[in-house]
Design a protein around this nucleic acid. Sequence first.
RNA 1: GUCGCUAUCGUCCAGAGGCCUAGGACGACAGAUUCUCAUUCUGUAAACACGGGUUCGAAUCCCGUUAGCGACACCA
Length: 455
Amino acid sequence: PSPTGKDVHIGSVATALMNFAWAKKNGGKFIIRIEDTDQSRLVPGGEAKMLSTLQELGIIADESPLVGGPFAPYRQSERLDIYKKYAKELVENGKAYYCTCTPERLSEMRLAQQKEKKVPKYDRFCLTKQDEVKKAIEQGSKYVIRLLIPDTEIVFTDLVRGEVRFHSSSLDDQVLLKSDGFPTYHLGVVVDDHLMEITHVLRGEEWLPSTPKHIILYKALGWEPPFFGHVSLLRNPDKSKLSKRKNPVWASEYVEKGIFPKTLLNYLALMGWSHPEGKEIFTLEEYIRVFDIKDIQTTAPVFDTTKLEWMNGEYIRQFDTETLKRKVCEFIGKSYDESIIEKSIPLVRERMKKLSDYPLLCDFLFQKPSQYEIDFIKYKSAFLEIRNYIQSIEHFTAEQIGVSMGDCAKKLGMKNSEFFMILRVAISGKKISPPLNESMEILGKDECIKRLSAI
RNA sequence: GUCGCUAUCGUCCAGAGGCCUAGGACGACAGAUUCUCAUUCUGUAAACACGGGUUCGAAUCCCGUUAGCGACACCA
């Protein structure tokens, strides 16, 4: 990943998950390398956050800037000498060349090309006068190193899309080494993938058009290219590339809403892939066992949070009370009474889709409602009666409350639905709430009477 | 504009020439249970983009059209 955002992008998590699964399945290593070659787009703290999020999600790296490894350093900004060495080697072998064109000249050139409806491409202005260019560089001119694209057809077999062919005439003489001494993505990724012995490059489809350049680079360096596979990009509901305007894109935003890491991975696994037995819910271990690159779908999936939330609800219902209580406590923090949380879990387990639903459902168990969804004026006398009934309940349990309230409704001549509705609102403030009798039991007799008296 | 990728219910997927009167899941709708909501259960609606081929036979193979997306930076 590239630390140009405040956290890891959900699409990167999806791709990372496939890479992780493929590596684990085949006894390989999963490596995280930070591609921080664009100084201007660096987001402070972004790298640390994306690394910790990946960790939290359970995508654990065998080698990374944090844990190290045999091919360290794993941060491209710390490998500048390596890239420069290979770039110069390329120049010496006639596979690349120096260029001192200014950004101004380049943009003028492109403008002119566009006006003539030509493909914008570098015109090799500097290639024809390399001696002159080298002299200028010696005198301190800023320069870049460009790949000399040969005239050829590039054919390769993409692991997920099959045979893909490009003609090099559509390719630009790609800058490999920037004037600030940093490599571009293209140089960095090829050099490091080779040096770090990467066997499979599974990445987003936005890289498909650059792959021919990478293959040319591998050949120019005399190296064997790895296997490439390009997976489809996650989409917004309108099919455009998943963007933060239309969806939360940072992985931690989902966790912060109370979506479990396991849910997120499980759901992401289903983007462009399906379990051979048609299962929807499965563990990471099982995914690793049955995953295969050849089963990846080529169509671009819409990231639909509705199904994600359904799935999270399924996970919630799988937890026992103790586990779910712990997760709720961790999520909402210390300001809530733990014993009440524990008692309330059975009432809300089937009603929650994500942890952030808990306070919405249960706030009335911790404090008196601040407003009521219906007007009680015509029920004043009814509440007097209800209070008397409650007062006379000896064992204040859900069951006893149910019996007593049933009797009370009968005495008042009210329909159960109407009776329980006004009681529900008086207790919880809302027309929709967890089961009423059980909620009243948790609140206790005194608190119930207090609430009924207050209206 | 050029190059490339893609095209099955609203959404996620199954389907790798006859097993397809196209299957599952989410969502929607209806019903059952119920003091609300939810859970659970039952049922319903809902798709092979279009046009040509190939073949005895096409959702599946080929070509074209259309549409969507991506790439064309000293960004990744």
